[in-house]
Design a protein around this nucleic acid. Sequence first.
DNA 1: AAGACGTGGTT
DNA 2: TAACCAAGTCT
Length: 312
Amino acid sequence: MTAMTSTSPQTPQTPQGPQTPPAAALHTPVIGWFEQHARDLPWRRPEAGAWGVMVSEFMLQQTPVSRVLPVYEQWLARWPRPADLAAEAPGEAVRAWGRLGYPRRALRLHGAAQAITERHGGDVPSEHSQLLALPGIGEYTAAAVASFAYGQRHAVLDTNVRRVFARAANGIQYPPNATTAAERKLARALLPDEDERAAKWAAATMELGALVCTARNESCERCPISAHCAWRLAGKPAHEGPPRKGQTYAGTDRQVRGRLLAVLRDALTPVPQAALDAVWEEPVQRARALDGLVADGLVEPLADGRYRLPLT
DNA sequence: AAGACGTGGTT
DNA sequence: TAACCAAGTCT
């Protein structure tokens, strides 16, 4: 995507062609589409506040919206402010996380709530660097919270936005596995100048990737910038290069950890070793998985040999 | 910097 | 059915 800021004096009125419009020419159709088609999600409502936005961002990391919705509602009802969560045992956060997956996120969200309570007077910080310093908040989430909760101007590069830009601007089906400097540069160049409009653009491009410019079965007919999309104009060439990182699960430590933690989550009292041994046949892998959970702070071993979700 | 880290729906 | 995919972070 090349911003055409200079026009030849010979052809001042000549259209620049659909492939390379000025960045600003994309803003209006994408934002207009968003205002027409955006989903009504609870964390987008004004009453969600910065804490609601932050909780949603933690839960949405690698997790579909449909699975997040019910847990989000319960979470906000139980812990409406960071200090409410900070006052709880971390194990309660892990329990309330339910089956969202990646339960370390629950622990990190609890840790972030504690840091916010101690360092920021109980208010989710608005400064990008302060957000980035919180556990569980990386490049994407810091930008997302600053943008969505505080209306700031940041390049928000999640998997959806990266795919939209890869296609529309670079003409390729999928972005690289890891975010590159070139992607960040492009995202910054495409950002509207004004703060509120930049925040809208971030949400809009993300929504476009989630609903229209999807990983599979994209719907170019419904895309507001299909006329400008380099990938579509090139005939939608298939992805080449290194295979996208696959995920195996069956038989891995992750699966064993999941089973162990499920037992702990459902238990109201400390669990004896035998109850954990029952979830996996192979003893070496089982022990390794349990050790890992303890090392991660997701499980607390008691002196009597039993286990529970962490109290501290 | 490649790999670990959950879970469940879709193709 | 096996593989892919889902608003990433951390080491």
